[in-house]
Simulated scan of single mutants.
Amino acid sequence: MRAFFKNIQGDRYIWAVAGLLAIFSFMPVYSASSNLAYLYGDGNTIKFLFKHFAHLMLGFAILYGVHKIPYHYFRGLSIIALPLVFVLLLVTLAQGTTIGGANASRWIRVPLVGFTFQTSTLAGVVLMTYVARYLSRIKDKAITFKETLLPLWGPVFLILALILPANFSTTAIIFAMVTLLVFVGGYPLRYLGIVLGAGLLMLTLFVLSAKAFPGVFPNRVDTWISRVENFSDKTDTEGDYQIERSKIAIASGGIKGLGPGKSVQKNFLPQSSSDFIFAIIVEEWGLVGGFILMGLYLFLLYRLVLVAHKSEGMFSKLLVIGVGLPIVFQALINMAVAVELFPVTGQTLPLVSSGGTSIWMTCLALGMILSVSAKREIKEKDIEENDNPLAVLSEAL
């Protein structure tokens, strides 16, 4: 065990936050999964606990392996991974798994293994890395909007267009994070305004097209609209069943909570172990537990800013911001949804909610951040030859 800890590199506080979140997640996941166990007939909650344990073990194996890779290799790897992400998103859009009879084609089923994988979360990490790479290359150059249109915004809008039909919330979050990243990277504001206007126009055209041809994208646009309407209509107490149950859970928890495993609303919330797990946590652990959990994510944000500040190269700074901020942003959105500060989005609580893809991609992003924060890497400047994907492959082989 001592040898294992000696091989751990990077920011120890980030390691500690990730470990604390993972360890804490077992209790609410085990408690909240009871409704799933009875829903599927056997009433066995242990298998859900073991499944969550397996997801976390694989996730931390990914984290450990990725944090050993020198971060400048992620430059070239982002170019290699981008076309693969395009293909995966196309396959997902065409053959995505439908869950519960709804048009929820966000997952693809991996052959032989049998588990499902949500490709949009991988696309988000790859895209943020690619954007960080591109911005680091143009940081000292005078650019025009035309020069950045295809190499920067082409991949961004293509990936978002492939995610949008099945997952509006993820599309909106990725676009917001890309916008924030290019702003931090010094992209001209006048060009950024053009991009924001174009994004809004494209979204409007998509919604109008989906409403005009409902058979192409069944359920999704109507679902988005109904969620926004339910959120804005405060007098509609039956408009959003999940939000009402979530607020009941939070109100029942009070300051100290009902105690671990004593949640009542877990039996009524459809996504109690994933999308609305924060409500179950507050019900069982009270506002004290909820604020402590929020504090861990905010402390993670502080460490991310510190790592980015200490990094010397532009790519390393933007990489930490690009893959790290979405983790904290997603956590805050999940909490905001539970207390009705935000419409229902379907975003999980990173490293706490059940769900393999979310855990694995969070660990992938944290591994990249820890690679940057490793002392041997912080003291090195970005290596331009590793921007070439062929150089990355040849050195790896």
Rank of each mutant, 00 (worst) to 15 (best):
R12D: 02
L20R: 10
A22D: 04
S25E: 06
P28F: 02
V29K: 04
Y30T: 09
Y30Q: 11
S31G: 02
N35V: 15
L36M: 08
L36H: 04
A37S: 05
Y38P: 02
T45E: 09
I46M: 11
I46F: 12
K47I: 09
F48D: 07
F50I: 12
K51A: 06
H55R: 12
L56E: 05
G65P: 07
G65A: 14
V66G: 07
H67G: 04
Y73G: 11
Y73R: 15
F74P: 01
L77E: 08
A81I: 03
P83F: 12
L84V: 15
V85A: 02
F86P: 01
V87H: 07
V91P: 00
A94V: 09
Q95H: 12
G100H: 08
N103T: 14
A104Y: 11
L112T: 12
T119F: 00
Y130K: 02
V131L: 02
L135Q: 03
I138V: 14
K139R: 12
D140I: 08
P151S: 09
P151N: 11
F157L: 11
L181I: 01
F183D: 04
Y187R: 00
Y187D: 03
L189H: 03
L189T: 03
L192Y: 07
G193P: 01
V195D: 01
G199F: 02
M202H: 03
S209V: 13
A212P: 06
F213W: 12
N219Q: 15
V221W: 01
E238A: 10
D240E: 15
R245D: 07
A249H: 08
G253P: 00
K266L: 15
L269A: 09
Q271W: 09
D275Q: 13
I281V: 14
E284H: 11
W285A: 12
L287I: 13
V288P: 07
F291G: 05
Y297Q: 06
L298N: 12
H309R: 15
S311G: 07
S311M: 04
S311K: 07
G313D: 04
S316Y: 05
K317A: 01
G322K: 00
V323M: 12
L325G: 00
A331W: 01
I333F: 07
G346V: 00
Q347D: 05
L349P: 05
L351I: 01
S353V: 12
G355C: 05
W360N: 03
T362A: 05
S371P: 10
I378E: 14
K379N: 13
I383M: 15
E384I: 14
P389Y: 12
A391N: 15
L393K: 08
S394M: 13
L397P: 04
